[in-house]
Simulated assay, not measured.
Amino acid sequence: MKIDILTLFPEMFTSPFNASIIKRAMDENIVEISTLDFRQYGIGKHKIVDDTPYGGGAGMLLKPEPIFEAMDEINAADPTAEKRIILMDPAGKPFNHELAEDFSKSDHLVFICGHYEGYDERIRTLVTDEVSLGDYVLTGGELAAMVMIDATVRLLPGVLGNVDSAKEDSHASGLLEYPHYTRPAMYRGMEVPEVLRNGNHQLIEKWRHQESLKRTYDRRKDMLKNYPLTEEDKQFIQQLINPIQK
Protein backbone atom coordinates (compact mmCIF):
# COMPACT_ATOMS: atom_id res chain seq x y z
CA MET A 1 0.00 0.00 0.00
CA LYS A 2 1.09 3.55 -0.78
CA ILE A 3 0.00 6.41 1.52
CA ASP A 4 0.56 10.08 0.76
CA ILE A 5 -0.16 12.82 3.31
CA LEU A 6 -0.70 16.43 2.25
CA THR A 7 0.21 18.58 5.24
CA LEU A 8 1.72 21.89 6.30
CA PHE A 9 3.54 20.11 9.14
CA PRO A 10 5.27 16.98 7.81
CA GLU A 11 7.54 16.85 10.85
CA MET A 12 4.56 15.86 12.98
CA PHE A 13 4.54 12.42 11.35
CA THR A 14 8.22 11.58 11.86
CA SER A 15 8.07 10.21 15.39
CA PRO A 16 4.72 8.36 15.31
CA PHE A 17 5.59 6.51 12.11
CA ASN A 18 9.16 5.78 13.13
CA ALA A 19 8.29 3.33 15.88
CA SER A 20 6.37 0.17 16.65
CA ILE A 21 4.10 -1.61 14.17
CA ILE A 22 3.96 1.14 11.55
CA LYS A 23 7.76 1.30 11.31
CA ARG A 24 7.98 -2.48 10.97
CA ALA A 25 5.37 -2.43 8.21
CA MET A 26 7.40 0.22 6.38
CA ASP A 27 10.68 -1.66 6.90
CA GLU A 28 9.09 -4.80 5.44
CA ASN A 29 7.75 -2.84 2.44
CA ILE A 30 4.14 -3.63 3.32
CA VAL A 31 3.32 0.08 3.29
CA GLU A 32 5.09 3.17 1.94
CA ILE A 33 4.19 6.43 3.70
CA SER A 34 5.22 9.83 2.31
CA THR A 35 4.44 13.38 3.37
CA LEU A 36 4.11 16.30 0.99
CA ASP A 37 4.32 19.84 2.35
CA PHE A 38 1.85 21.68 0.15
CA ARG A 39 3.19 25.04 1.29
CA GLN A 40 5.74 24.69 -1.52
CA TYR A 41 2.83 25.39 -3.85
CA GLY A 42 1.78 28.49 -1.91
CA ILE A 43 1.28 31.80 -3.68
CA GLY A 44 4.05 34.40 -4.01
CA LYS A 45 7.40 34.63 -2.31
CA HIS A 46 5.78 34.07 1.09
CA LYS A 47 4.13 30.84 -0.09
CA ILE A 48 0.66 31.87 1.09
CA VAL A 49 -1.76 28.92 1.41
CA ASP A 50 -4.78 30.62 3.02
CA ASP A 51 -6.99 33.64 2.38
CA THR A 52 -10.10 35.38 3.69
CA PRO A 53 -13.48 33.99 2.61
CA TYR A 54 -15.58 35.69 -0.04
CA GLY A 55 -18.62 37.31 1.54
CA GLY A 56 -16.83 37.87 4.84
CA GLY A 57 -16.78 35.78 7.97
CA ALA A 58 -14.41 34.66 10.69
CA GLY A 59 -11.20 32.77 10.03
CA MET A 60 -9.17 31.89 6.99
CA LEU A 61 -9.65 29.24 4.31
CA LEU A 62 -7.13 26.99 2.61
CA LYS A 63 -6.70 28.17 -0.96
CA PRO A 64 -7.38 25.71 -3.78
CA GLU A 65 -4.12 26.18 -5.73
CA PRO A 66 -1.70 24.50 -3.27
CA ILE A 67 -3.89 21.43 -2.81
CA PHE A 68 -4.65 21.01 -6.51
CA GLU A 69 -1.00 21.36 -7.47
CA ALA A 70 0.11 18.95 -4.76
CA MET A 71 -2.41 16.42 -6.09
CA ASP A 72 -1.03 17.03 -9.60
CA GLU A 73 2.39 15.96 -8.31
CA ILE A 74 1.01 12.82 -6.66
CA ASN A 75 -0.97 11.86 -9.75
CA ALA A 76 2.02 12.44 -12.00
CA ALA A 77 4.16 10.13 -9.85
CA ASP A 78 1.53 7.38 -9.90
CA PRO A 79 -0.80 8.09 -12.83
CA THR A 80 -2.46 4.69 -13.18
CA ALA A 81 -3.33 3.85 -9.56
CA GLU A 82 -6.89 4.23 -8.37
CA LYS A 83 -6.66 6.47 -5.32
CA ARG A 84 -8.84 7.10 -2.28
CA ILE A 85 -8.49 10.82 -1.55
CA ILE A 86 -9.46 11.40 2.07
CA LEU A 87 -10.22 14.88 3.38
CA MET A 88 -9.88 15.40 7.13
CA ASP A 89 -13.07 17.30 7.97
CA PRO A 90 -15.12 17.64 11.21
CA ALA A 91 -18.23 17.59 9.01
CA GLY A 92 -17.29 14.28 7.38
CA LYS A 93 -18.62 10.83 8.13
CA PRO A 94 -17.36 9.38 11.43
CA PHE A 95 -14.31 7.14 11.20
CA ASN A 96 -14.82 3.60 12.47
CA HIS A 97 -13.43 0.08 12.14
CA GLU A 98 -15.55 -0.67 9.09
CA LEU A 99 -14.10 2.33 7.28
CA ALA A 100 -10.57 1.30 8.30
CA GLU A 101 -11.20 -2.12 6.76
CA ASP A 102 -12.48 -0.44 3.61
CA PHE A 103 -9.37 1.76 3.38
CA SER A 104 -7.10 -1.26 3.93
CA LYS A 105 -8.33 -2.77 0.66
CA SER A 106 -7.01 0.18 -1.36
CA ASP A 107 -3.62 0.30 -3.06
CA HIS A 108 -3.12 4.06 -2.70
CA LEU A 109 -4.52 6.41 -0.03
CA VAL A 110 -4.07 10.18 0.06
CA PHE A 111 -4.87 12.11 3.25
CA ILE A 112 -5.43 15.87 3.04
CA CYS A 113 -4.82 17.60 6.38
CA GLY A 114 -6.47 20.97 6.67
CA HIS A 115 -5.86 23.95 8.95
CA TYR A 116 -7.47 27.29 9.65
CA GLU A 117 -11.26 27.71 9.46
CA GLY A 118 -11.83 25.33 6.57
CA TYR A 119 -11.35 24.61 2.88
CA ASP A 120 -12.17 26.42 -0.30
CA GLU A 121 -15.14 24.36 -1.46
CA ARG A 122 -13.49 23.52 -4.79
CA ILE A 123 -10.97 21.34 -2.97
CA ARG A 124 -13.78 18.89 -2.25
CA THR A 125 -14.03 18.08 -5.96
CA LEU A 126 -10.71 16.24 -5.61
CA VAL A 127 -11.73 13.89 -2.81
CA THR A 128 -13.49 10.54 -2.59
CA ASP A 129 -14.07 10.57 1.19
CA GLU A 130 -14.67 13.29 3.78
CA VAL A 131 -13.97 11.80 7.20
CA SER A 132 -14.12 12.98 10.80
CA LEU A 133 -12.35 11.44 13.79
CA GLY A 134 -15.13 12.53 16.13
CA ASP A 135 -17.51 15.25 17.19
CA TYR A 136 -14.86 17.77 18.14
CA VAL A 137 -12.50 20.14 16.38
CA LEU A 138 -8.70 19.75 16.30
CA THR A 139 -6.22 22.46 15.37
CA GLY A 140 -5.42 20.54 12.20
CA GLY A 141 -6.02 17.28 10.40
CA GLU A 142 -2.63 15.72 11.18
CA LEU A 143 -3.59 13.94 14.41
CA ALA A 144 -6.76 12.57 12.83
CA ALA A 145 -4.79 11.29 9.84
CA MET A 146 -2.30 9.55 12.13
CA VAL A 147 -5.08 7.69 13.91
CA MET A 148 -6.78 6.65 10.68
CA ILE A 149 -3.50 5.50 9.12
CA ASP A 150 -2.59 3.48 12.20
CA ALA A 151 -6.02 1.82 12.30
CA THR A 152 -5.80 1.03 8.58
CA VAL A 153 -2.21 -0.19 8.31
CA ARG A 154 -2.54 -2.69 11.16
CA LEU A 155 -5.21 -4.48 9.10
CA LEU A 156 -2.88 -5.10 6.16
CA PRO A 157 -1.77 -8.73 5.72
CA GLY A 158 1.56 -9.40 7.42
CA VAL A 159 1.55 -6.33 9.68
CA LEU A 160 0.42 -8.01 12.89
CA GLY A 161 2.34 -11.02 14.11
CA ASN A 162 -0.85 -12.94 14.91
CA VAL A 163 -3.38 -12.93 12.06
CA ASP A 164 -6.24 -13.38 14.55
CA SER A 165 -5.34 -10.29 16.57
CA ALA A 166 -7.17 -7.83 14.31
CA LYS A 167 -10.19 -10.13 14.04
CA GLU A 168 -10.61 -10.26 17.82
CA ASP A 169 -10.18 -6.55 18.48
CA SER A 170 -13.01 -4.51 19.91
CA HIS A 171 -15.36 -3.37 17.11
CA ALA A 172 -13.93 -5.85 14.60
CA SER A 173 -16.49 -8.51 15.55
CA GLY A 174 -19.28 -6.05 16.23
CA LEU A 175 -18.80 -6.39 20.00
CA LEU A 176 -16.35 -4.98 22.51
CA GLU A 177 -13.48 -7.32 23.27
CA TYR A 178 -13.67 -9.73 26.20
CA PRO A 179 -11.36 -9.40 29.27
CA HIS A 180 -7.81 -10.76 29.02
CA TYR A 181 -5.59 -12.26 31.72
CA THR A 182 -2.01 -13.48 31.94
CA ARG A 183 0.23 -14.89 34.70
CA PRO A 184 0.19 -14.97 37.67
CA ALA A 185 -3.11 -16.73 38.28
CA MET A 186 -3.53 -14.87 41.58
CA TYR A 187 -2.37 -11.33 42.21
CA ARG A 188 -3.27 -9.20 45.24
CA GLY A 189 -6.37 -11.23 45.86
CA MET A 190 -7.54 -11.04 42.24
CA GLU A 191 -7.81 -14.42 40.54
CA VAL A 192 -7.89 -15.36 36.87
CA PRO A 193 -11.26 -17.03 36.11
CA GLU A 194 -11.08 -20.79 36.43
CA VAL A 195 -12.64 -21.31 32.99
CA LEU A 196 -9.52 -19.82 31.33
CA ARG A 197 -7.26 -22.27 33.17
CA ASN A 198 -9.08 -25.55 32.66
CA GLY A 199 -8.01 -26.16 29.05
CA ASN A 200 -11.54 -26.64 27.73
CA HIS A 201 -11.46 -24.49 24.58
CA GLN A 202 -15.17 -24.83 23.90
CA LEU A 203 -16.01 -23.42 27.33
CA ILE A 204 -13.35 -20.73 26.94
CA GLU A 205 -14.87 -19.56 23.64
CA LYS A 206 -18.35 -19.49 25.19
CA TRP A 207 -17.07 -17.52 28.20
CA ARG A 208 -15.25 -15.04 25.97
CA HIS A 209 -18.30 -14.50 23.77
CA GLN A 210 -20.58 -13.94 26.77
CA GLU A 211 -18.08 -11.58 28.37
CA SER A 212 -17.98 -9.61 25.11
CA LEU A 213 -21.76 -9.42 25.16
CA LYS A 214 -21.73 -8.32 28.79
CA ARG A 215 -19.08 -5.65 28.26
CA THR A 216 -20.89 -4.34 25.20
CA TYR A 217 -24.22 -4.29 27.04
CA ASP A 218 -22.65 -2.45 29.99
CA ARG A 219 -20.68 0.09 27.96
CA ARG A 220 -22.04 0.36 24.40
CA LYS A 221 -25.64 -0.88 24.17
CA ASP A 222 -25.97 0.92 20.85
CA MET A 223 -23.65 -1.64 19.22
CA LEU A 224 -26.06 -4.48 19.99
CA LYS A 225 -28.69 -3.00 17.64
CA ASN A 226 -26.69 -4.13 14.61
CA TYR A 227 -25.23 -7.33 16.03
CA PRO A 228 -26.85 -10.63 14.88
CA LEU A 229 -27.86 -11.96 18.29
CA THR A 230 -28.65 -15.67 18.57
CA GLU A 231 -31.45 -16.92 20.80
CA GLU A 232 -28.82 -17.94 23.34
CA ASP A 233 -27.34 -14.43 23.20
CA LYS A 234 -30.77 -12.90 23.80
CA GLN A 235 -31.36 -15.17 26.79
CA PHE A 236 -27.96 -14.24 28.22
CA ILE A 237 -28.67 -10.51 27.83
CA GLN A 238 -32.11 -10.97 29.38
CA GLN A 239 -30.36 -12.47 32.43
CA LEU A 240 -28.17 -9.35 32.58
CA ILE A 241 -31.30 -7.19 32.55
CA ASN A 242 -33.23 -9.33 35.01
CA PRO A 243 -30.75 -11.45 37.00
CA ILE A 244 -32.19 -14.54 38.59
CA GLN A 245 -32.50 -14.04 42.32
CA LYS A 246 -31.02 -16.84 44.39
Rank of each mutant, 00 (worst) to 15 (best):
S34N: 15
L176C: 11
H108K: 09
I204V: 15
H108T: 03
R208C: 05
F38G: 01
A91M: 15
T35K: 04
A77K: 08
E211T: 02
E98N: 15
L8D: 01
I22D: 05
E232G: 01
H108M: 06
G158Y: 02
E142V: 03
S15G: 11
G189P: 12
D78R: 14
K105H: 12
G44E: 00
V131H: 12
K2W: 11
E205W: 03
S212I: 00
M26V: 15
L138H: 07
E142W: 10
A144N: 11
L99D: 11
I48R: 01
P53W: 08
D37Y: 04
L160N: 03
I21N: 06
D150N: 06
I5L: 04
S15N: 09
D233V: 08
I86T: 09
V159R: 04
L61Q: 07
M71Q: 02
L138V: 15
D233T: 10
N162H: 10
M146H: 09
G158E: 02
I3D: 00
N29V: 12
Y178E: 03
S15C: 08
M26S: 09
L229P: 07
L240H: 03
L61E: 08
V159Q: 09
E194L: 13
N18H: 09
I149M: 07
R197I: 13
L203Q: 13
F9S: 07
F38I: 00
I85F: 11
G118I: 02
I204Y: 05
M223R: 04
L36V: 01
E205M: 10
F111V: 15
I112G: 05
